[in-house]
Design a protein around this nucleic acid. Structure first.
Lengths: 132, 132
DNA sequence: TCGCACACGTTATAGCATAACGCAATTGAT
DNA sequence: ATCAATTGCGTTATGCTATAACGTGTGCGA
């Protein structure tokens, strides 16, 4: 699933996420796009749905927010399981990948014959700057 | 933080979660406790807050639900990072722990000087029975 | 007995997400 | 060329999740 050309709304939403310096909620995105004609949450959610599908945006389940993938130009789905460290003070997000973690989780699911569709790893805490 | 005696409301909420065969949302818990005098969401959320603190209940971030810890009588906080496999068809949840995963994630956060407070690992998919 | 901490109850509100309807544009097979 | 299917879009309404703010009562140590 590589990303086809984005529609106008998808491009607007993606642009907002890419320029943001941290994750944004759908309603925050909506507010930022009111000047561009957005009026309803669904316009945002529909765009996000596609952007997630294309793998250019991640959803952070633990904070109900969305963030542009840290690997511009690539499809995040190709990196295996993605993990996030989310600073609860400044909101910054670090994205990383660990094949060993992938491997262990995949082994476990296989041993249980569990068919994994989507895996979430989110670490909340304080980044170096904020912990000081 | 081991669990002190539960208050009436805490005990009611915990009891509902323990008897349930899967995770429940706060509002579902509320409905199940209306006969016991619960009227408002806050009664549930306040009890859940304590139960989470005591480590006898887990919150599943990806489905906004709560589940009793699979290790009755123990404090879940003592097991290190907890991972969940959540069946999107039947709602069943499997809870497990993997020290190697713990280790890799802890190493990563240390290398970034990120102070982890709470880590979420949730795998959504289909359990063996539902995938058949 | 005073002050404090804590659990609790209630009302109101904030924040997150989707259902259901209809319209317009695109595509692509016949 | 035309029709049907698909997709994106806009709007209204609604539902679900979570917390703010206020007040009450109770127990307990200074």
């Amino acid at each position: 699933m590589s990303a086809p050309a984005l529609t106008k709304n998808q491009a607007l939403v993606f642009d907002v996420l890419e320029k943001a310096d941290g994750p944004l909620s759908a309603y925050t995105i909506l507010d930022k796009l009111r000047d561009h004609g957005f009026r309803a949450p669904l316009q945002v959610y529909r765009a996000l749905e596609k952007l997630l599908e294309y793998g250019v945006v991640h959803r952070l389940e633990s904070i109900n927010s969305f963030v542009a993938c840290a690997h511009p130009g690539e499809n995040c789905h190709s990196h295996g399981i993605v993990a996030f460290a989310i600073c609860e003070s400044c909101g910054q997000v670090m994205e990383f990948h660990d094949h060993e973690v992938d491997h262990r989780l995949t082994d476990w699911t296989k041993s249980k014959k569990f068919k994994a569709e989507k895996t979430t790893i989110e670490i909340r805490g304080l980044c170096e700057a904020c912990a000081a």
